[in-house]
Amino acid sequence: MDLDKMDARLLDYIQSGLPVSPEPYREMASVLDTNEEDIIARLRRLIDMGIIRRLGAVFDSRKVGYTGTLCAMKVPTDRITEVAGIINAFPGITHNYLRDHDYNMWFTLLAESQENIGAILDEIRKKTGIADLIDLPAEHIFKIRVNFDLSEE
């Protein structure tokens, strides 16, 4: 990773927030003591390098009106790719991880209603033929650290 001091300062700054004003990059430049072209060029490079995944709004799915859950499934090891393909094809699946556990496939699902969640899970059971699927909706959220993007559920 080839980052200089200004890149590090820039990443630090934009993790906590971008200015919501007509010329955000110019405003960032004046805070970081450089110019707008430099900020834009650095952001472009950091995006190309894959260090920045995206710039802009991170929504609270619940306040947007969506409901979410975390699910786990017991998937035979020789069916991982096939089953992941079936699950990941649903647009509301935001994360899917293979984990070292009997329940080895863990995914988060967002949908516009509880009924939609139920219908998608039924479809997943039907298409995969795997009934061993647990649905673990959150009852209480204690913490979501905002400068990480692991969970949007």
């Binding site: 934009i14 927030g17 920045i52 995944r53 995206r54 709004a57 991170v58 929504f59 609270d60």
Partner: peptide, 9 residues
């Protein structure tokens, strides 16, 4: 509704 307006790394 917007939890944060910034960069996702």
């Amino acid at each position: 509704v917007i939890r944060r307006f910034g960069a996702t790394l």
